[in-house]
Amino acid sequence: MHVYIYDDYLNNSRYNKIINRIEIRLTDLGLNGKIIRLSGIKNIKGAIQNEIKLGSKTFIAVGNNQTVNKIIGAIINSDIYSDFQKKTLLGIIPVGSDNSIAASFGIKNEEEACNILLARRVEEIDLGLVAGHYFLNQAVIQSSGTVLELNGYSLEVSDRGEVKIINLLSDKNETIKSNPHDGLLDVFIKTGKKNESFLKTKTIKIFNAKHKLIIDNIIEIETPTELSVMKNKINAIVGKNRMFE
């Protein structure tokens, strides 16, 4: 059975029309299922764990990046997830802004999302982890004053720009290729048009006294902190126009 998890902000009346449209489309496609509204529950983990126990296999985040990350955190941290990992699927129906994860999955809008759920194309995807938070796309920090510590060596960035730790690419125009199945994070440092650095790593420590690390455009994290990656941890339902092989 499908479980649709609606984020808090969808209670706003301006999303009523979109939600109605999604529900009608899902009914037409025979994909209707149980709806859980995050505004009505305090314990997401408990609610999801309960659904897994009851036999639910597909969890669909209806909302934005934050919704997806909340649900991933709740699924992964469930005590019983490891037993069901290969059977539990994650889908996304993007609503509103901040939907780079959906874009990475090749999902442009809510209508396309419904069709993608029906097609059920599944990919195993790595999951980034930093300070107890999971992330699918990337972690970003200002480059000036940033020190990165990797296996046996450190990198100091002097110029202004951006350091991105990428798990899953969210921008098609980016000059690098990132593989979300390789069990590695891609470190991409851009301090000018022609000044780009790139390397791959399993873990990385970040230090910056002035700036915070931002994951998936949502959560700010103080440094020093360590990032790592878990290989093929999530089974995601993706579109054919996804930004990875």
């Binding site: 060596y153 990198l155 960035v157 650095s197 390397l199």
Partner: peptide, 28 residues
């Protein structure tokens, strides 16, 4: 240039023992 496993740009300072399996470009 794009096929290199690691690219270290001119604004980057690396300290330590740098080891790799693939091609490495150092501009810094």
């Amino acid at each position: 240039f794009k096929d290199a496993e690691t690219i270290i740009g001119s604004s980057i300072k690396v300290k330590g023992n740098f080891q790799g399996q693939g091609d490495i470009v150092i501009e810094g």
